[in-house]
Simulated scan of single mutants.
Amino acid sequence: MSVSNPAEGPPASSRTRAGAPAGRLAVLDGVRVFAALAVLFYHYVVLASAWGEPTEGVFPVARGFAVYGWLGVEIFFLVSGFVICMSAWGRTVGDFAVSRVSRLFPAYWAAVAFTSLVLLNWPEVREVERITDVVVNLSMLQGGLGVPNIDDAYWTLFVELKFYVLFAVVVMRGLTYRNCVLFCGVWTLAGVVAPTVDNGVLSFFAVPSASPYFIAGIAFYLMRRFRPNAVLWAVVLAQFLLAQHHVGARMVASLGKTATEHIRDWPAHLIILLGFAVMAGIALGAFDRVHWRWLPHAGALTYPLYLIHMMAGLTIIHHFRSEVAPVPLAIGVTAVMLAIAWIMHRLIERPLGRMLRDSLRRGVQDIRSGTPGPSRPSIDLVPAQPSAPEAERLPARS
């Protein structure tokens, strides 16, 4: 899940070759809001664990739409490829790392703590088996260590981390049009080859079901920054076809094999088509006039909302499901999660992110200069020997 800030990008004074101004794209915030609410809709309406029974009877109409809400994750990945390429342009690898760490971790740490407290106090839907699992989750590396996620939604963060590591190599070599296109080609090849070979490292980083979205997002940004051309459209087309190829497997992973036998897959294919179409419109400047003032504020809530809504929200639903009607309960829990996300963004994510960013920047500057910054005066435990003239003035000791 790109869960990234579209405000981060090239200087406002720069312009694309097509003449469109570079900078904040409010429409990206709108896409992120749609994706986040789609995932929440899917979790609250489709998953039976919160309601204690199959949800076909709980939401006979809404469930028919909610079963496709998992595609919000794919849309997040598509936006992430665009935004990460935009935010990394003109930065060093150190600046890129500082940007990502300070952006991701403050809200994530708060979400892990919040979700853990909810599950420890109300272990109705999920239990925290070991406190050490919580500690490992704070690193965001649990996906590679075989430790269960405190919240199932966190699986996307490890996929994002893989993308960041791979893209950091491009930033290190120099973020240019040529290197980005080369990266897109190599990662595409890896995604196609990985399922057919027995190579653990290749399989780990290839992530074939997610990489098409990241790669397409990068290509769309290159279109916007430079200009559309046959090579970039070919990259996008290849990723679109690969994304469509993986729809069946993603439906099974999200809904289960039995459930997918009764669910049509054409709406999923159509949603992916619409996602690519919207991103193409952004790349071509079709939405540059969208400047709704509320979008950046709403977009800022999508990351904390994504992090806290699932297990905590399902727990609240399970706790009150016999006392409140399903529709008001789902809407009420959504409102509560939005309020908590706003509080988390204002009181934790923004101030802590700023502090962490400033601290990491100082550390990066120290590394560049080769010194650890200003040092404290040292305390010499052995008295220094006096200089010769001074020694002559001192009385001799017997």
Results as ranks from 00 to 15, higher is better:
8 E>M: 10
13 S>Q: 15
15 R>L: 15
16 T>H: 09
20 A>R: 08
20 A>M: 14
21 P>I: 04
24 R>M: 11
24 R>W: 05
28 L>K: 00
32 R>M: 06
33 V>S: 06
34 F>W: 15
44 Y>Q: 03
45 V>I: 13
47 L>P: 03
52 G>Q: 06
53 E>A: 11
54 P>N: 08
54 P>V: 09
58 V>M: 08
62 A>T: 08
63 R>I: 15
65 F>I: 07
71 L>T: 00
72 G>V: 02
73 V>Q: 03
74 E>L: 14
76 F>H: 01
76 F>S: 01
82 F>Y: 12
92 T>L: 07
92 T>V: 09
95 D>H: 15
99 S>E: 11
101 V>A: 10
101 V>N: 05
101 V>G: 04
102 S>T: 09
106 P>V: 04
107 A>F: 00
107 A>Y: 00
108 Y>G: 01
110 A>C: 10
111 A>V: 02
111 A>S: 12
112 V>F: 04
114 F>H: 05
116 S>L: 06
123 P>A: 09
124 E>C: 06
125 V>N: 02
127 E>Y: 12
134 V>E: 05
136 V>W: 06
146 G>P: 09
148 P>Q: 13
155 W>C: 07
158 F>A: 13
160 E>G: 02
165 V>M: 14
166 L>S: 08
167 F>G: 00
168 A>P: 02
177 Y>L: 12
177 Y>T: 10
196 T>L: 10
208 P>R: 08
213 Y>F: 15
216 A>W: 00
219 A>M: 05
224 R>P: 00
228 P>G: 06
235 V>M: 05
241 L>Q: 11
245 H>N: 13
251 M>Y: 02
251 M>F: 05
253 A>Q: 14
256 G>S: 11
258 T>H: 07
258 T>P: 06
259 A>I: 06
259 A>S: 13
260 T>V: 13
264 R>E: 15
266 W>T: 13
271 I>W: 10
280 A>D: 13
282 I>D: 01
283 A>S: 15
285 G>A: 08
286 A>I: 11
288 D>P: 02
290 V>M: 11
296 P>K: 01
301 L>Y: 03
307 L>F: 02
307 L>D: 00
309 H>M: 04
313 G>P: 01
314 L>H: 05
320 F>W: 12
321 R>N: 10
323 E>M: 14
330 A>S: 07
337 M>D: 06
337 M>T: 05
341 A>W: 00
344 M>P: 04
351 P>L: 11
356 L>S: 05
357 R>G: 12
357 R>P: 09
360 L>C: 09
361 R>A: 15
362 R>K: 14
372 P>L: 13
373 G>I: 08
377 P>L: 09
390 E>S: 14
393 R>N: 14
395 P>H: 09
397 R>Y: 13
